[in-house]
Design a protein around this nucleic acid. Structure first.
Lengths: 365, 365
DNA sequence: GACCCGGGTTTCAACGTTGAAATCACGGGA
DNA sequence: TCCCGTGATTTCAACGTTGAAACCCGGGTC
């Protein structure tokens, strides 16, 4: 079969109608070279008549850029990644880029494929939110395509990264509970497999411990709630509402019950939402008996019962920094790797009200 | 500046190392022509050594396809569209396609741009979830790129569409309430601007009315709750939790209060979630006093208080049908337009339990 | 021994665009 | 009058890939 007649007019077709050379049409479109008003008008008329659109593939082949970025996330269906994708698409659009979304499902092979640029060579840069792979694997797999890693799972110094500080943010969230008078704190979302290394959840646990230490407190090991090991077959991964629900229910059903627990720090909002349900089902008052904080500030967290106090990462800023970083690499591939921080803030709501209104538990939207 | 040396090896580089012509390397890679085992081995070694990746732009230019689809949605951050994007990416991947995600923010201009294929000529087809534009505008704007419309806003016969039947599904949801003994029903999500035409919400209202008629009932106009007119500046659009909350709160604060309302059908889950909060704040028991149903079956709807009964569209099937349709158009641009239906089901939960357990209101995950 | 067959490989040209450089038209200054 | 310069336009080549067709060569066949 001969090359598909892609059914679109080309510069030459427009040129024939306008009675100029096709290069002049190109000049009109790109605006790079001066064109007289009269020919410009003729060309524009012809463009309109044929409904001409430039063939981006040809342009890319010629100039070496596609104005396309690839965003690779584990699951688009999780609120955090949906918000992230939204932020990235918006930030990319502001600088004239489109975004190809790739879902890895947390599959290490697919993350490596994403890092290497496979099936994506036509994209100018990659933003990778890794979930399963580690530093060495990433460094081994990465190709020539500019790469920026989102999140703290990867810690290698040799890659550009944009992160939100999990340790200090979770420390702040924990300190918020302590300031409100909570003394027996738990953490939901520790990871069983120590070998997996620097997952964000580990850093959040570290932040939790840091805050406890600073207050001269210690966590009861019974209150460090593991989540199930990562399972690809699960549609949503392990940091899910279901998992939070199951783990807290298990705690409540255990021999010691709450065992005095009066504050629960969750590795993310979904776990917290599951926890809220388990506590509610068991008749445990939140925040009366147990205060709960999450991490993400998912949109739904303002509408839980009670509304969830959470750490809100500035995803807009995160996305802008990431897009800026990857474009810097596109311009200068030898630019030294940077690590940038996106800000966050603590959003106090009724599930863990600030000290002054600790007992009131009034609803804060 | 001369064309960016895109820093990648080409077929020729590989050929030079393997000691064959570059066409042979192409043969090895595409597998189209027979290659002897020995040269294949040499070529593969060279490919590995250079870490060669085909330049998709060049391939596309030559063969006229990019293996890229564009998905255009209003807001990736809304659960429905996040789920939809997830489903589309998955369905596209299964047939070897990647997906570019475009966010229109419900802006009519951007929807038209998406329909026309602007900035997207390198994509083989477009899946458009329209929110603001109507039939004529769409037909006028569409370009040569194969286009499939998702959802029922567009009703033009001349476009391929994949829909979930809003009328019958909402009729079913309403009938579910009626079967459970509810007699004074309301609808949350009517649209003020009648000129906007066949938005999904109108069809859902129609389904609501159909079910009432079939049962010999009629809706009190006070119980038809409008949502604010569409406003682009709003980050989430009008079918939001906030809007649901505000509208139901306004009803409760009005002169007649609930006025006997014992069942509320919502145009989508977010509105329903906002409604649940307003009812809870006012101390109105759900489902005791008012039963609530939504539409979408957002993931969070299983975790609201009480869990939300909802219509669950089969987005996986919707996405598969849409991808199949658009690829059919890619193969045969003259293929006559089709309208396909994706299935849905009613997911009963505690906010509107089925007839048998209507009074119990037990939690169903 | 000339001929054909077919697997394996190569040559050629083209996809539509843009950087670079050549060409052209024309008005102003020497 | 001739030349220069500048703006406008055109010619040329190349980006990396693949369809089409030519080529090469060893093994049958008559």
């Amino acid at each position: 079969m001969s090359p598909r007649r892609s059914a679109g007019p080309t510069l030459k077709d427009v040129a024939a109608i306008a009675g100029v050379s096709y290069r002049t049409v190109s000049n009109v479109i790109s605006g790079k070279a001066p064109v007289s008003a009269s020919t410009r008008a003729r060309v524009e008329a012809a463009v309109a008549e044929l409904d001409y659109r430039p063939q981006l593939a040809a342009r890319q082949l010629r100039v070496g850029r596609s104005n396309l970025l690839t965003l690779s996330v584990p699951f688009l269906s999780l609120p955090y990644f949906a918000q992230l994708a939204h932020a990235v698409v918006t930030a990319a659009e502001a600088v004239g880029y489109d975004v190809v979304v790739d879902e890895t499902h947390g599959d290490p092979e697919r993350e490596l494929r994403a890092a290497s640029g496979y099936r994506t060579l036509l994209s100018d840069g990659i933003l990778l939110s890794a979930m399963s792979i580690g530093d060495e694997e990433l460094m081994a797999a990465r190709g020539r395509t500019p790469l920026v890693v989102l999140g703290e799972r990867i810690r290698a110094a040799r890659v550009d990264r944009v992160v939100v500080d999990s340790v200090t943010s979770t420390r702040d969230a924990t300190a918020h509970l302590i300031a409100a008078g909570r003394r027996t704190l738990g953490f939901l979302g520790t990871v069983p497999d120590a070998s997996s290394g620097a997952a964000a959840a580990d850093l959040r646990l570290e932040g939790f411990r840091t805050a406890l230490r600073a207050a001269g407190l210690e966590a009861d090991p019974r209150h460090l709630l593991e989540v199930s090991p990562w399972d690809q077959r699960s549609p949503d991964g392990d940091y899910s509402r279901e998992e939070g629900h199951a783990r807290v229910r298990a705690l409540l059903a255990g021999p010691d019950g709450l065992a005095g627990l009066d504050g629960l720090v969750c590795a993310n909002d979904l776990l917290a939402i599951g926890a809220l349900r388990a506590l509610r089902e068991a008749g445990v008052e939140v925040p009366g008996r147990v205060a709960v904080v999450g991490w993400d500030d998912a949109p739904e967290s303002a509408y839980t019962v009670p509304p969830l106090t959470s750490i809100a990462p500035d995803l807009g800023e995160l996305a802008r920094l990431a897009v800026a970083s990857v474009l810097r690499l596109v311009d200068d591939p030898d630019s030294p790797p940077r690590v940038e921080q996106a800000p966050y803030r603590l959003v106090p709501r009724a599930s863990a009200p600030p000290a002054s209104t600790s007992s009131a538990g009034q609803l804060v939207p």
